[in-house]
Design a protein around this nucleic acid. Sequence first.
DNA 1: GCGGTGACGAAGC
DNA 2: AGCTTCGCCACCG
Length: 114
Amino acid sequence: MKSNESMNFYEQVYEVTRKIPVGKVTSYGLIAEYLGSKSSSRLIGTALSKCFSYKHPVPAHRVVNRNGMLTGKFHFGGNTTMENLLKSEGIEVKDNKIINFEKHLWSPFECVKK
DNA sequence: GCGGTGACGAAGC
DNA sequence: AGCTTCGCCACCG
C-alpha cells in the first residue's frame, strides 16, 4: 500500500491540531512530543505559521505555548481574533493568556487512548 | 547544498 | 523572578 507521501512533518502537525476538540487547547511541545521530536517544539510553531498553506483549515488558535500564552495571536491578523475564537469555545483568556490552562489542556495522546 | 528562519522550551545569568 | 542565550530541526530562497 502506498503511504501518503504528502505527509510531511508540517502536515502531521496540522492533522494533530485538527484533532483538538472544541473547548480544548494544547501546547507546541506536546505536539512535538507526540510526533516523536520533543526537542523540535519550534517546528510546531513554524509549521502552524504556514498552516494556511494547508488544504484544510487548522484550528491553530487552540495551540498555545507552554505557559498557555497566545504567542501566535499576531498571526491571526494582529488583532484579538485568536482570543475571540478561544472565548467562543468557552475558554477564558486574559492578557493573552488562557485562564485555567491546565483545565483546558488536551494531549494528542488522548486521541489514540481508547 | 547551505544559511537563515522560527506561533518553543529549557537553562543560564 | 525576569530577561537573555542556546539548542533544536524541518522548511524556504
